[in-house]
Design a protein around this nucleic acid. Structure first.
Lengths: 164, 164
DNA sequence: TCAAAAAGTTTGATATTCGAACTATTTATA
DNA sequence: TATAAATAGTTCGAATATCAAACTTTTTGA
């Protein structure tokens, strides 16, 4: 098999594996997968508008609105009409929402990290280098992604709305 | 940043990028995302049972049945009752289904392949090796959850219907 | 000033998704 | 060997997801 085909198959395996993980975690939190991914995005990015959420999740605004409706009913997110630009609606996690996401046990990732740290340094570097190269080819460097496991992310300074 | 955190960030970038791509592609084929992913799995794995599909996609059998219903109505997949084990139902792509998937040569993937082939052989090998290692780690953690047909097992032998 | 653009919601339609109950078949065991 | 348990798949009902199109409100640009 071509090397490029091998790489594509491996990438798809990574993606599928992540999908499985996300589904498991979302079930553990009592959320649907879409709700969980939306909450995860919010946790990473802080306050966002409906439109930004839609773009980040590759969904339409209408879809995001309907997911937000349900999360709001559960008091996991809050809507706030923009003050500068009154068309915008700023979404943020409530305390309950933050708590739920903090409690989302990323056991899977913990296992990944433990196994990773068992590898030889040269192996670690090789893997990171390989992944970096793949991300570059996928043109995905610009995508905003944080390591979900990193609890420190939770108290990232709130995004400044200024430039919006 | 820790190497392991770097790796997690890179993996998440790959996953988001793929999600966006998949949504684009599925729209182009006139399929929903779920239908597309199911067809993609079939194309990669060949003939599969409903249950194997469900496990591979991290869905319940009931869900897969309903997606299959719609794909069958469009004549993109075919069901065939197992001969050896009559409880099983073997799913395969029809010619039309194959054609549709062949015709979905994701532009993104073409770009990926072209760029990949521009790389030095040693770089190609490094990337494949890195990805392989990542897939291995991701698999290892999943093994305890579902011992049977694990997602993306590395060197799964080509499917033989005999023993089924 | 006012038409177009932008942000978000609503509506209506189809699809996804699950758990639970069901049928048919196979396997295990007493 | 009889039969209880397990396995494979479907059906059903209910909650969600998802989109396109139409709509409201607000901002921008000419």
């Amino acid at each position: 098999m071509e090397n490029s085909q091998k790489a594509l198959v491996l990438l798809r395996k990574i993606i599928r594996s992540a999908d499985v993980q996300n589904k498991e975690i979302s079930r553990r939190t009592g959320l649907t997968l879409s709700q969980f991914l939306l909450m995860q995005t919010l946790r990473e990015e802080g306050q966002m508008t409906t439109g930004e959420l839609a773009k980040s999740l590759a969904l339409t605004q209408a879809t995001v609105t309907s997911i937000l409706d349900r999360l709001e009913k559960k008091a996991l997110i809050a809507r706030e009409r923009g003050e500068v630009d009154k068309r915008k609606v700023w979404i943020s996690l409530t305390d309950a929402g933050l708590e739920l996401m903090k409690g989302a046990p990323t056991t899977q990732q913990e296992v990944f990290v433990r196994d990773f740290e068992d590898m030889q340094p040269w192996e670690q570097s090789m893997m990171v280098a390989g992944l970096e190269r793949a991300v570059y080819l996928l043109n995905a460097e610009h995508l905003d992604a944080s390591p979900v496991l990193d609890i420190g992310q939770l108290d990232r300074p709130p995004r400044t709305d200024a430039g919006k």
